[in-house]
Simulated scan of single mutants.
Amino acid sequence: MSTPYAEVIGDPISQSKSPDIHGFWLGELGLASDYRATRVQDGELPDYLSGRRGDPDWLGCNVTMPHKQTIIPLLDRLHPLAKRVGAVNTVVRAGDGALVGYNTDVAGFLEPLQSMLADKHLFRMARILGTGGAARAIIAGLAQEGFTLVIAGRNPAKARALLDELAPDGEHHTPPLDHFATETDFAFDDREGCCDLIVNASPLGMRGQPPLAFDFSHAPPGSIVYDIVTDPLDTPLLKDARAAGLHTVDGLSMLIGQAAAAFEKFFGVPAPRGSDDRLRERLMQ
C-alpha cells in the first residue's frame, strides 16, 4: 500500500530539521503519511518537479536554499504573498493538479510576535541585520505590520534594493552593518508606547560562521531581540540580550511556526501545537 508523503528539498539538506518537526507531528496525530528530505542540486529542479508531478503519493515539498527563488518560474501558480515576497518555501499540489507556491516564512517569523503585535503602538521600528534570502520574508512581514525598517548589510545598496522592492512605502533606512558594531552615545527618548525589534537575519553567529558584532547601546530600552539562527539555538546575541535585560526570541520559534503553516497545507489538518515543548526538547537533543 502506498504512503502519501511530503518532503523538504535543498542543497545541502542533511542539516534540515524539517523531517524531525513534521515526523513528530505525524506521530502525534497518528497519520499514515511520511515526510522526507531530498537533496536537489542546482540545475536539477526541472527534472525533480517533472518526476513529482507524476507521483500520485507526493503531496508537496518545503523548499530551502538555494531554490526559494529559482523554483518560481517552474510553478503553475503563486499565492499573492509568495509573489510579493519573491520567494517560495512551500509547494503544494492543488486539486486541479497545479503546483502552487506559498511562502510560510512570513507567518512563521511573525507568529512569536503576535501578542506584541496585538497591542497598539505610537511607533514601531525594526533593526534587521542581514540582506540575504531570509531577510526577504522578514522585511515583507514587518512592513505589513507598520514597522519603520532599518536594514543593515555589508552592501547598503542591496539593502536599499530590498526595501524598494518589498517595502517601498515609509521612511526606511540602510546603514552599513558595521554601524551597529561600535558603541553609540545616542540618547533614546522615552520609549513608552513604542515597539523596538532587533532581528539577526544573517548567518553570523551560526556554528562555523563569524560572530555577529552588535553593541547593545544601539538597542532601545524594552527591545525584543530575535535571532533566526538555529545552530546554536542560544546564540551569543541572545545571551547578550538577556544579560541586558531584554526579551528574546530564538530561531526555533520561526522554524516551527513556518513548518506548522506548511503542515496543514500538506496533510489537511492543523499541526498539534500543544506539544511544542516536547518538540523543542527533541530538536535540541
Rank of each mutant, 00 (worst) to 15 (best):
T3H: 05
Y5C: 01
A6S: 07
A6T: 00
A6N: 01
I9Y: 03
G10Q: 02
D11V: 00
I13N: 00
S14Q: 05
K17I: 11
I21K: 02
G23F: 15
F24M: 06
E28M: 13
E28A: 15
L29W: 11
A32W: 02
D34K: 00
A37P: 02
T38G: 09
T38N: 11
R39Y: 10
V40I: 08
V40W: 06
V40T: 03
E44V: 04
P46R: 01
S50H: 14
G51P: 05
R53P: 15
D55N: 08
P56Y: 05
W58M: 03
T64A: 05
Q69V: 14
I71M: 03
I71L: 07
I72G: 09
L75M: 07
L75I: 04
L75D: 05
R77L: 12
R77K: 08
L78W: 04
L78D: 08
A82P: 13
A82W: 03
K83G: 15
K83Y: 07
V91G: 10
R93L: 12
R93D: 07
G95M: 09
D96R: 04
G97F: 13
G97D: 11
N103L: 12
N103S: 10
D105L: 14
F109I: 09
E111M: 11
L113Q: 03
Q114M: 11
L117C: 12
L117Q: 04
A118K: 01
D119R: 12
M125D: 09
R127Q: 15
I128D: 00
G132M: 03
A134T: 00
A135D: 01
A140F: 02
G141L: 10
L142I: 04
L142P: 11
A143F: 10
A143P: 02
A143Q: 07
Q144N: 06
F147V: 11
F147Y: 12
T148V: 06
V150N: 12
A152F: 12
P156L: 13
A159K: 01
P168N: 09
P176A: 07
P176W: 02
L177R: 04
D178E: 15
H179A: 15
H179F: 15
T184S: 14
D189F: 05
E192L: 15
G193R: 00
C194N: 06
L197Y: 01
I198D: 03
N200K: 00
N200D: 10
N200C: 08
N200Y: 02
S202L: 10
S202W: 05
F214L: 11
D215E: 07
H218Y: 10
H218S: 08
H218T: 05
G222T: 04
V225E: 04
I228Q: 02
V229Q: 02
D234N: 04
P236Y: 03
P236C: 06
L238W: 04
D240K: 06
D240G: 09
A241Y: 06
R242P: 14
A243G: 14
A243W: 08
A244S: 10
G245N: 02
V249H: 03
G251D: 03
G251Q: 01
G251I: 01
M254Q: 03
I256L: 11
A260G: 12
A262H: 06
F267P: 13
F267G: 13
V269F: 11
V269M: 10
P270N: 10
P270W: 10
P272S: 08
G274A: 15
D277Q: 12
R280H: 09
Q285P: 02
